[in-house]
């Protein structure tokens, strides 16, 4: 299976732009039906089901969170957060021709602004991508924040 790195980078930037634009529905549509978004709570955490996570969400839980983003009664989301993401150091780490998937690692820097305050996020990101025609679907996105085990504020967004 030959997958062009450039195409992978384009896809990751496309995904980041959807998140920047808070186009949650379009972003969510990038996932496979059983796709998972995962933000571990410990560095190097390899098991989402034996250890607590910051976020570990399937399609239903993402739908609820996305509905919550639009719900003005969710107090912690008031004041219109906005943000941007930079994706870099993209590498294809593994290819599984049989499953038609690739594993991609990247580094993420992001900033979110809400209520007079800017919060920075730095993450080690792993995508498991399923090739679909000319593009990809996300089977797993794992975002390990640099400070995932630090005393920190709430996580009110997808990175």
């Amino acid at each position: 299976m030959s997958v062009d790195l450039r195409k992978v980078e384009d896809f990751l930037v496309h995904e980041a732009r959807l998140l920047d634009a808070r186009d949650w529905a379009a972003w969510d549509a990038l996932f496979t039906p059983d796709g998972i978004y995962w933000m571990p709570a410990a560095p190097g955490q390899d098991d989402p089901l034996r250890h607590v996570s910051l976020i570990y969400e399937n399609a239903l839980l993402r739908e609820i969170r996305i509905r919550r983003f639009a719900d003005t009664s969710a107090f912690s989301l008031q004041g219109g957060p906005r943000g941007w993401r930079i994706v870099a150091n993209v590498r294809i780490d593994a290819r599984d021709a049989e499953a038609n998937t690739i594993t991609v690692s990247s580094r993420l820097m992001a900033a979110e602004y809400q209520r007079d305050r800017t919060t920075r996020f730095e993450g080690f990101v792993t995508h498991r991508l399923v090739t679909e025609g000319d593009s990809f679907r996300i089977a797993l996105k794992r975002v390990e924040l640099l400070d995932c085990d630090a005393m920190r504020g709430d996580i009110n967004l997808y990175l």
Binding site: A74, S76, R152, D154, I155
Partner: peptide, 11 residues
């Protein structure tokens, strides 16, 4: 804190 309840309490 990354979920749906305690984020609101913290705020």
């Amino acid at each position: 804190p990354g979920g749906f309840v305690s984020a609101d309490d913290g705020e």
